[in-house]
């Protein structure tokens, strides 16, 4: 069965999704990723979806799940590189990925993760990175 490779970079896990996911593959990713987080004690998860052209409600849910699950295990999740067309479609769909942090590219995502872990004791001054609430 196909699997999405998960790379470990220091305290973080990096996943680059290169193919269009079907549901089973996405579920596998969720499983693998959570197992990796608990095994490695990673503090952050970076998911690069810049090559993904379709995110539907199922994929959106998986991303949300990954974020909430890793948060319980004290790891933050950042989704990076979402295509404009995908973002517009998600909003129309009514899905705003609440609780998932986003960044423009891997570099900015890394910065954000470092920031999160560094400032975890002062949550009041992280205005810019406040969780994206569902505002619909």
């Amino acid at each position: 069965m196909d699997r999405i490779p998960i790379l470990k970079m220091g305290q973080f896990l990096l996943v680059t999704i290169q193919v269009d996911l079907y549901d089973r593959l996405a579920l596998n990713l969720e499983n693998d990723l959570i197992n990796m987080v608990s095994k490695t004690g990673a503090r952050g998860v970076l998911i690069d979806i810049s090559a993904v052209s379709i995110v539907d409600s199922f994929m959106g849910r998986i991303l949300g799940n990954i974020a909430s699950m890793s948060r319980i295990m004290d790891a933050e999740t950042v989704v990076v590189g979402m295509q404009p067309a995908v973002a517009i479609t998600l909003v129309e769909l009514g899905l705003t990925l609440q609780g998932v942090y986003t960044a423009l590219d891997v570099e900015k995502g890394m910065e954000l993760l470092h920031d999160k872990i560094g400032t975890i004791e002062h949550p009041e001054d992280e205005e810019e990175e406040a969780p994206h609430d569902d505002i619909d």
Partner: peptide
């Protein structure tokens, strides 16, 4: 407007 803001946020911008 809210939609536009949400989409921008999904991209990782404010």
């Amino acid at each position: 407007l809210i939609k536009t803001v949400s989409a921008t946020r999904l991209m990782g911008a404010e």
